[in-house]
Design a protein around this nucleic acid. Structure first.
Lengths: 329, 329
DNA sequence: GTGAAAGCGCTAACAC
DNA sequence: GTGTTAGCGCTTTCAC
């Protein structure tokens, strides 16, 4: 196999303890010895075997991040924030669950078998009770999606308030027939966003009307179908609030096929501010989450938890922002 | 700490060796003993510590995949293919380098310190010579981007031929003034695609004209700038071949601002077939890479290499496909 | 079919 | 300031 600490010790004429001290910048070693050891390390191309180190120290300095998918660019900023918060003490491993509970649990084995010290879940299928149980024995956190009943460190925006703001934007401009496109999933953010939609309407004395609500999946083609449905109504909506940018894209794409003028005849607002929303024609008005900050925060707090006896299981809420573009000016 | 194999052995009244045999489904253990041990394992909620196992076996069953970024959805299918090829024997860890050589080397430490058994690089900054050196001591592979001088297992499409096909598509339709938008990076695919562009023109007796070539970065705003430049020419191009879909998006976005009709007045072809290219208005004609198959292939071949004495360092080339959409019919 | 024991590479407590 | 040594949790060889 490869060169070990023993080989280095022998070649440098010192004990393995001394080599270990040099590796860990332990103070109690003379400059000359350190220099000599380092020289041997370089000469031999020695790299410490972390399996030995980790076993001994009972920690790996690795954090697992489970993404629902890499299909969406929503997570990009979050990941950058996470990596910046972790560096240089921890490494972030990304893995994707494709939103399957099975896959999530399989990935969490890395937590159970000590391959990683902690895990962050971005949109999990695991229920609150199970999360609480996991949180007793392991270091976990949620990001982007809260989970009902989970008393676990969580970082999100206030989805209800964000949706309220988006829909209020339409209302303030005089729109009254406002549709909603949402998803039929267990994702809590969808429910919260619908609640914000409902509250905004109520604030203007408008009752939620199920015929203006289209419930579907996440795909952009669902947005296309939604638009067809809305336009088939006797009184089509004047504005559509979508709980994701991808759905908004579908709406606009279908509108372009059907000759409906987006921004004038029909206004559209998305959610997430993925890079696509700026690039699309027209640009898509949307709600931005502070992704980088969310990622940085969740890792920072998680690391704190890992080095404390008493865990902080708070739900941290960061500020959202409405980004106005061509689809709803 | 947590429950160990020793605890299980004691509770089950057997030796640790027997517990280990049960864990590894070793044949030489009686059914009764196995059942008893498994019961204790479940009761105690025991999960083997992989640090111990991995140290002992000198392998982790983890593979590191270094992505340039998670900003782009190009990699999504590739990753799915990789995971399917690895499952259930290996886990795939994703990590992003943001195309920094420093970060790549830092991530490769996981290879040196035995945190992972192998690494796959999707677009690396590391030069061929260094890759060859790494390939001597470690298990590595390239995917998507070949590297000049690297005699390392590599899976790509034939970028030169793909670009040739795309540009030939324009030529066959009678277009003669065909522009190219490419990137000034070390990415080999860009050079190969430019070579394909040049060869296609030459096949029609057209000499490459630098005024029809715009060299920039990867961002979609570069595509916007490129279009402005091309339209400022005395004889603007009739078609534009972009080495990425994102650049094509920029071109089309700017065209919509400037009132240039895409698909008729100007045709545009991208590269990669990211999901956006289907969703855009108009849909973007582009070159598709067989992402899933590429990911599956590179992991399959890499695993073969890891269990052989003689490494297979071949360059595997998979088939590309031209996808025709509204931006160039 | 089962157990005893060595040892993977490393760190850290203890001795000097 | 440095060396000796135990031991982290596991697998595996060798006895029996």
């Amino acid at each position: 196999m490869s060169v070990t600490i023993k080989d280095v010790a022998k070649a440098a004429g010192v004990s393995v303890a001394t080599v270990s001290r040099v590796l860990n910048n332990s103070s109690a070693v003379s400059d000359e010895t350190a220099a000599a050891v380092n020289e041997v390390i370089n000469e031999m191309g020695y790299s410490p075997n972390f399996l030995g180190r980790n076993l001994r120290k009972c920690e790996t300095n690795n954090i697992l991040v489970i993404l629902p998918s890499t299909e969406h660019t929503v997570y990009s900023n979050i990941i950058n924030g996470m990596q910046d918060a972790a560096y240089p003490f921890y490494d972030i491993f990304l893995s994707t669950s494709n939103s399957y509970l099975d896959t999530e649990m399989r990935l969490l084995n890395m937590l159970f078998n000590r391959t990683v010290d902690a895990a962050v879940l971005l949109g999990t299928q695991i229920d609150g009770e199970k999360l609480n149980e996991l949180n007793k024995s392991y270091n976990i956190a949620l990001c982007c999606e809260r989970r009902e009943g989970a008393n676990v460190l969580t970082v999100t925006i206030n989805d209800e308030a964000a949706a309220f703001d988006a829909v209020s934007f339409f209302l303030k401009k005089g729109k009254r027939k406002i549709a909603l496109i949402t998803t039929v999933t267990s994702a809590h953010s969808s429910h919260d966003r619908e609640a914000g939609y409902t509250r905004a309407l109520a604030a203007y004395g408008i009752e939620k009307d199920e015929k203006y609500i289209y419930r579907c999946s996440y795909d952009y083609t669902d947005g296309c179908e939604a638009l067809k449905y809305f336009m088939s109504l006797p009184e089509p909506p004047e504005a559509v609030f979508c709980i994701s940018d991808l759905l908004a894209v579908g709406v606009i794409k279908q509108a372009s096929r059907d000759g409906i003028a987006i921004g004038s005849q029909l206004e559209v607002c998305g959610f997430d501010n993925i890079s696509l929303s700026e690039m699309y024609i027209p640009g898509i008005t949307t709600v931005a989450q502070p992704g980088y900050e969310m990622g940085k925060t969740v890792i920072t707090k998680l690391l704190e938890n890992m080095h404390k006896t008493e865990k902080n299981n708070e739900h941290i809420i960061l500020d959202h922002e409405l980004i106005i573009r061509g689809s709803a000016k």
